[in-house]
Amino acid sequence: MLKITNLHATVEGTEILKGINLEVAPGEIHAIMGPNGSGKSTLAQVLAGHDAFTVTEGTVRYENEDLLDMAPEDRARKGVFLAFQYPVEIPGVNSAYFLRTGLNEVRKARGEEEIDAYDFLALIRAKMALVEMDESFLKRSVNEGFSGGEKKRHEVLQMAVLEPRLAILDETDSGLDIDALRVVANGVNQLHTPQNSAIVVTHYQRLLEYIVPDYVHVLMGGRIVRSGGKELALQLEDRGYDWIREETAAAAATTQPAGA
C-alpha cells in the first residue's frame, strides 16, 4: 500500500528527514515513536503533502502511484488521511460545512454521488456518537475554542467520516484523558479492515494497548533506527531512548570507523 524509500526532506534548508525507509502493507498498523524533534510530524506532513517541506531525495509509492507527485487534495481523495498533531482553527467555517465539503470531494473522487444535507446529518450523527462528541460542535467554527481533547476527537471524527485507506495519526493521543483515549482507539479500530492501514505516531505505549500495532518503529535524527513488534514499545516505556541512541552510535562507529 505504502512504500517509502530513502526519503530525505528539508525545511527552510535544514534537513530533517535523512533517509526514511518504511513499507506498510494493507491491513497493517505501524506505530512510530521517537524523541521530540526527531522528525515524526515532518514525515506525517510530507506524506500529506505540506509544501513547507521539500523532498530532496527518495520516493514514496502509494497504491502503486507516486504519492509525492500528487497535490494534497488528491492524496486525501485517494484515501490518505492525516490527523494533525496541531489541528488548525478556521474561524467562520463551521464544522458541519467543513466535514461535508471534504466528504463530498472524497466521494466524487470515488465515483460516488454527493451527499445531501439530510443524509449527511444522519451520517454525521452516527459518527459523532462513535467519538462521543456533542452535536453542538457541528455549528461551531472548526477547532475554534475547542479544548485540546476536543480537537483530537474532532480529528478522529473527520477520519471516521472520510473513511481513509491509510490513516496517519500524529499524536492523536497526546493530552487525552483515559476515556478520550479509548474513544480515539475505537475510531481507529472501527476503520481497521484487512484493506485499511494506519500509521500511529505516539509517545505513549498506553495507546498501543488499545490500538495493537503490527510493527513499532523508532524514528531518531530523521531516520528509522529500530523496528520491532509491539514489545519494543514496552521496552521504550521502561528504558527511554538513550540505549537505542548508544547502540545506534556504536553500530555507526563499527560500520563507518572513519566517520564521527
Binding site: 503533502g49 489541528p87 473527520q158
Partner: peptide, 26 residues
C-alpha cells in the same frame, strides 16, 4: 492562512475551492 488552506486540502478540498471557503468565511 496557509495552514488553514493546507488543512482543507488535506481533507480533499481543492486549492481554488479552499481559497473560496476561507475568503467567504472572512
Amino acid at each position: 492562512d496557509p495552514d488553514a488552506l493546507f488543512y482543507l486540502r488535506a481533507r480533499g478540498v481543492g486549492l481554488q475551492q479552499a481559497r473560496g471557503v476561507l475568503t467567504r468565511a472572512f
